[in-house]
């Protein structure tokens, strides 16, 4: 598959602090690449370097096969960016905001009008066309922010944490819109610290911490990096210490803890664990309210690789 973006050995320093540390990756045509990492891990800095907004110490950035520079207008015309911070004019209504930013890319007024209509439909702002930004809720404002960044139908889209602080309805709407963008042929680079979004959206994931890539691959590939394959949670009013110790000795159990009425068990391998546990709890006459099993998440992978939670 054709490479749309290539980043080679990118280093960006703020004085002595390395914000991006020898980062290299490629993005293929039509894929959604997730850049996953906690706040301050270097995701946005990487994006700003790629977009030639920030100077960097060394490295090479190629987009559509050409070197990216601040005046590379032929490259820029096919790029769409949705920054983490909402970037709209308070004095312009929804339509005018989208028209202004779209007009920086498209001169033809008729075609621009069609693009604006498509963008409004994509993010679901049909009922708010004449609203001003301060009249919109946080979620709707985020949707406008996205519409302003993608109305010109770019081939490569950077979405930098577009769902921060939005309500679930808007989040779902935004995620649906991103899938539609991909379906329409766009290549997407999606940065977030919400692993659920990455799991839903991304074809491939790069996990960044302290400016370095600590893992990359598909969601499943990454989960295999984790030493656990299954997590079981049991809600129990009380649990004898002896029973907990016995559970810890079960086959495949990596760790078992009991805190505040929750028994939490992680398994190294994921076969017949839940049924064995249910049988045992019946045998020792322990009654539980709820019992459920989960696959490990990318958060578990991150925890395993770095020893800290993704949302720290």
């Amino acid at each position: 598959m054709k490479t749309i973006l290539s980043v080679e050995n990118l280093i960006k320093k703020y004085k002595n602090f390395k914000a991006v540390d020898d980062l290299s990756f490629d993005v293929k045509k039509g894929e959604i690449l997730g850049l996953l990492g906690p706040n301050g891990s270097g995701k946005s800095t990487t994006i700003n370097c790629i977009l030639s907004l920030l100077k960097f110490e060394s490295g090479k950035i190629t987009i559509f096969g050409c070197e990216m520079r601040p005046d590379a207008y032929d490259i820029k015309k096919d790029i769409g960016v949705v920054f983490q911070e909402v970037a709209v004019f308070e004095e312009l209504n929804v339509i005018d905001n989208i028209d202004y930013f779209c007009g920086l890319y498209i001169k033809d007024k008729e075609y621009r009008k069609k693009c604006i209509d498509d963008a409004i439909k994509l993010v679901g702002l049909e009922d708010f066309k004449k609203f001003y930004p301060k009249q919109l809720s946080g979620g709707l404002l985020r949707r406008l922010n996205i519409a302003c960044g993608i109305a010109h139908k770019p081939k490569l889209v950077f979405l930098d944490e577009p769902t921060v602080a939005v309500d679930p309805q808007s989040r779902n709407n935004i995620l649906d819109g991103i899938k539609k963008l991909r379906d329409n042929g766009a290549t997407i680079i999606y940065t977030t610290h919400y692993m659920e979004e990455v799991e839903i959206l991304c074809d491939r994931v790069i996990i960044i911490d302290k400016g370095k890539i600590i893992a990359s691959g598909t969601g499943d590939e990454l989960k295999e990096l984790s030493k656990i394959e299954e997590k079981v949670t049991v809600e129990i009013d009380s649990l004898d210490e002896k029973i907990l110790e016995e559970i810890k000795q079960f086959k495949n159990v990596d760790e078992a803890t009991y805190n505040n009425g929750i028994l939490f068990i992680t398994y190294k391998k994921g076969k017949n664990n839940l049924s064995s546990l249910i049988d045992y709890l019946k045998k020792v006459d322990v009654h539980y309210d709820k019992i459920y099993s989960e696959r490990p998440t990318l958060n578990d992978v991150f925890l395993y690789l770095t020893g800290k939670e993704l949302r720290d």
């Binding site: 977009l51 030639s52 907004l53 601040p70 207008y73 032929d74 820029k76 015309k77 790029i79 960016v81 920054f83 911070e85 909402v86 970037a87 709209v88 004019f89 930013f101 920086l104 890319y105 302003c148 960044g149």
Partner: peptide
């Protein structure tokens, strides 16, 4: 201020567009 990437978010958006 609205045109400069280091001064405003709108400036960042304008700076990444293909405009002189």
């Amino acid at each position: 201020n609205q045109n400069l990437a280091n001064m405003s978010n709108n400036g960042k958006r304008i700076a990444v567009s293909p405009t002189n």
